[in-house]
């Protein structure tokens, strides 16, 4: 009852609405990211078959995201790293279990996907980093980044 003394019912209802909007706003961000991934990133996997797992997040400049996945022997894969327009190009590289860099798109004009074939099954890490803008007066950019994996049907 003390609560009702401090805040009348109307204020509490407004508070609930605001909290709902606040929580909904966060979810809206993920929703937008999901829609972006579906519309802009997934088509880039074709003709590879999507592994069905959604790896997307809103990243800021300087952020690093990693995807860890087992890649099977004698299978053909495509990795698509897709960033929202406002993010410019993002860097990604593939690293093996020993930490050795197997590929970096920095050596290939910051390309957004990479096709590869593994001779043996191994756990690899896809590391994605958002470069920081040069110069101190620009605003910190932030946007959706997705990492998708596709494979070919080798049957």
């Amino acid at each position: 009852m003390n609560v009702f003394k401090l805040y009348n019912m109307k204020t509490i209802v407004k508070l609930i609405i605001l909290i709902t909007i606040f929580v909904g706003f966060q979810n809206f961000g993920f929703s937008q990211c999901k829609t972006f991934t579906k519309n802009e990133c997934k088509p880039k996997l074709s003709p590879y078959i999507y592994n069905g797992q959604l790896n997307s997040a809103v990243l800021n400049e300087g952020d690093i995201a990693e995807l860890m996945l087992t890649f099977y022997s004698n299978q053909d894969y495509r990795i698509v790293v897709c960033a929202a327009e406002e993010m410019d190009a993002v860097n990604f590289r593939l690293i093996d279990a020993t930490g050795q860099e197997l590929f970096t798109n920095a050596d290939h004009d910051m390309v957004g996907h990479w096709d590869f074939h593994t001779k043996s099954t191994q756990q690899l890490t896809v590391e994605v980093s958002v470069p920081e803008t040069q110069g101190g007066d620009s605003l910190n950019k932030s946007g959706c980044v997705s990492i998708l994996v596709g494979f070919l049907d080798n049957q």
Binding site: Q53, L67, M68, L69, T70
Partner: peptide, 10 residues
């Protein structure tokens, strides 16, 4: 590392 995604093969 801001975010780590763990996937299983489909």
């Amino acid at each position: 590392i801001t975010k780590i995604f763990l996937n299983l093969p489909s």
